[in-house]
Design a protein around this nucleic acid. Structure first.
Length: 642
RNA sequence: GCCCAGAUAGCUCAGUUGGCAGAGCACCCCCUUGGUAAGGGGGAGGUCACGAGUUCGAAUCUCGUUCUGGGCUCCA
């Protein structure tokens, strides 16, 4: 498949980088060097540990190669010839494996530029002098073939464009993006804090951030009430056996916090002289009774005999809940249900804990404790389609209200080659069909991705990009035919017989933490008035109007608006500047004129000076803006930013 | 978890070959009483991430630990 002109430039840069690499480090063993969405990289196996100084050296060598104006020449060869070439250039270590990947019926080609030749399908620019604007950016580790078990190679990232201007623009864009980073804005605007002494990946919501979260929760709760959901509350922990029944333990053991064992049980087991390994084995083990139950319900050997231990050896504990489903299931199961009750929709802002690997943590977007705007729907099989649609429309309402337009939809299907999925194939087929049909109604393009399903069912995810281009899954809707079986859920149908309900898991935000992180970047900190921690800043021009300003502050607070008064001993310009830096949507300038006329001079963060209006008129206007959850106007062209 | 880089005041950062811990902003006080993005002066603020080692002497050199950033792997 031919590449786009930009891809050709970037891919050719990979080859030029490899050429430079071999000139500087002749013993480098090359793996692969493809173009990416934002540039290119080359993976290399090298004894020498590359440093940023090396990047400078390599880049200089690349410039030289570009100036040498080397031609890129394609050579098609037979497989035997290919092996010979690879051996001749001493690149057997990875290239022979890459050669073996090429299907028998595909042409094998090499590209040569100057002294460098590389196994490559192409395509390339004709001459290296076409490469005028490139830059090496960073060094990273990357596993060979993306497999953790393989050797970690050194990956050199770079970017390239057709012109120097485009490259410069891209680099400025990167700088600009850093200013929107939720980790920076979170600190500057005092939205959240992560403290080493509390723990990695555990968010402390400071007062400002808490206001945003609270407003979002109110917004969602309002929508849920309209759509017939019931609010529930459940504890943060549950017994291990609950998760053995659901199948989450020990299946996801590595990504869960360790179980909490009661003191007495711990003392007893220590007295018995149990090793740590033995204790873990006892925690993993199940009773014969549970095994029989689950295997009967699922109709196959879901729990194998080796996990069963005599009751005397079993050890139960509590787990920090990694998900809310089992708790909600127990609420559903606590009462008999008629088909007339369905669907039952149980919603909770439920906090869950997951043991993410330390290297995966990132600000608010990847954390170890987070609160899902979770709900579980229990419905009949006939209702699944309509309920999935309802969930999707909720996600759309939320995204529209917040002006989130730049997202993609992913329908996660099971990977036919994997056995990690539970449940009968025909149920999977039905559920996947329901998701596909529902996604079609969204009116936005979606991709079907095998292998992206949850282990209990297919799902529809809403994925957005953060400021540095990383994708994050936010909203999700998942169909589940599995957990109702494992927990033996039922309802009584019109035929007076027991039927199995279908479950739908859904979280339109995904998690409050990740969603807020993405939202901070989406708005760049310029939140709409309804979300702004501080909606109005009162700025008195002099102390002479301080009494009027204080009375006005009291008035605004009484109207349930979030306002503060800047009593600093500064000039007006400085106070305005501070309000702008704090990203307050409205600044009210108060001087003698305003005090005498019971009015305010309004300055909008987005639109600048809006002139004088009566206090009553302003309050009414702002309250309307807040209650309709209006989006902020596009910010005016930034003046001199700090 | 793995690879690379980093950690100095609340924030952004400087700190030379090892020799008294620095600046700007923010904070507090004083002067200034003003009309839409920075008036002026003063003050306070530090276990240089933590722990060892080398040295007469360590923010600076070495080792270890923790955390952060960029990747990789993972993400129910």
């Amino acid at each position: 498949m031919p590449m786009t002109p930009l891809e050709e430039i970037r891919h050719s840069c990979s080859h030029v980088l490899a050429t430079a690499l071999l000139r500087v480090f002749p013993d480098a063993k090359l793996d692969i060097g493809p173009p990416t969405d934002t540039g290119f990289y080359y993976d290399v196996d090298l004894e020498h540990k590359l440093t940023t100084d090396d990047l400078t050296k390599l880049e200089a060598e690349m410039k030289k190669i570009a100036d040498e104006n080397q031609g890129f020449q394609r050579k098609e060869v037979s497989r035997d010839e290919a092996i010979e070439i690879i051996k001749k250039i001493g690149q057997e270590r990875y290239k022979l494996g890459r050669l073996a990947d090429i299907p028998a019926d595909e042409k094998i080609s090499f590209y040569q530029n100057g002294e460098f030749i590389d196994l490559c399908a192409g395509t390339h620019v004709r001459y290296s002098s076409k490469l005028k604007a490139f830059k090496l950016l960073s060094i990273a580790g990357a596993y060979h073939r993306g497999d953790e078990k393989n050797k970690q190679l050194q990956r050199i990232y770079g970017t390239a464009f057709a012109s120097k201007e485009e490259l410069a623009n891209y680099l400025t864009q990167l700088e600009q993006a850093k200013l929107r980073d939720h980790r920076k804005l979170g600190r500057d605007l005092k939205l959240f804090h992560i403290d080493d002494d509390v723990g990695q990946g555990l968010i402390l919501w400071t007062p400002n951030g808490s206001i945003i979260r609270q407003e979002l929760q109110t917004f969602i709760s309002d929508e849920l009430r309209k759509q017939g959901y019931s609010q529930v509350f459940t504890p943060h922990i549950g017994k291990l056996e609950l998760y053995k029944t659901s199948g989450h333990f020990p299946y996801y053991k590595e990504s869960q916090f360790s179980p909490v064992v009661e003191n007495e049980a711990l003392a007893r087991i220590t007295q018995e002289g149990c090793s740590c390994g033995e204790m873990m084995a006892r925690l993993d083990a199940v009773s014969g009774h549970l095994r029989d139950q689950i295997n009967a319900r699922t109709g196959r050997e879901t729990i194998t005999p080796d996990r069963v231990r005599p009751d005397a050896q079993l050890l139960d504990g509590f787990m920090l809940k990694p998900m809310n489903c089992p708790h909600h299931i127990k609420i559903f199961a606590s009462q008999p249900h008629s088909y007339r009750d369905l669907p039952v929709r149980l919603a909770e802002f439920g906090t869950v804990y997951r043991w993410e690997q330390s290297g995966e943590l990132s600000g608010m977007t990847r954390v170890r404790g987070f609160t899902q705007d979770d709900a579980h729907l229990f419905c009949t099989e006939e209702q699944v389609g309509a309920e999935v649609l309802g969930c999707l429309s909720l996600v759309k309402i939320i995204f529209n209200t917040l002006g989130l337009q730049d997202y993609r939809v992913r329908v996660g299907l099971r990977d036919p080659d994997s056995n990690k999925y539970t449940g009968a194939a025909e149920n999977w087929d039905k559920a996947e069909a329901a998701c596909r049909e529902a996604a079609k109604t969204l009116g936005v393009p979606f991709t079907e991705e095998p292998g992206e399903a949850a282990f209990y069912g297919p799902k529809i995810d809403f994925v957005v990009k953060d400021v540095i281009g990383r994708e994050w899954q936010l909203g999700t809707v998942q169909v589940d035919y599995n957990l109702p079986v494992r927990f033996d859920l039922s309802y009584i149908g019109a035929d007076n017989a027991a039927h199995r309900p279908v479950m739908i898991h859904r979280a339109p935000f995904g998690s409050m933490e990740r969603f807020c992180g993405v939202l901070i970047e989406h708005f760049g900190g310029d939140f709409p008035a309804w979300l702004s921690p501080e909606q109005v800043r009162l700025v008195p021009i002099s102390e002479k109007v301080i009494d009027y300003s204080r009375a006005l502050l009291a008035r605004l607070k009484a109207e349930n608006l979030r306002a503060t008064l800047d009593e600093h001993n500064d000039k007006l310009g400085a106070k305005i500047r501070r309000a702008e830096i704090d990203k307050v949507p409205y600044t009210l300038v108060i001087g003698q004129k305003e005090a005498e006329a019971n009015s305010v001079s309004v300055r909008s963060r987005a639109r600048g000076d809006e002139g004088v209006m009566t206090t009553d008129a302003y309050v009414a206007k702002l309250k309307a803006e807040v209650s309709t959850r209006a989006l902020p106007d596009k910010k005016k062209a930034p003046a001199e930013q700090p």
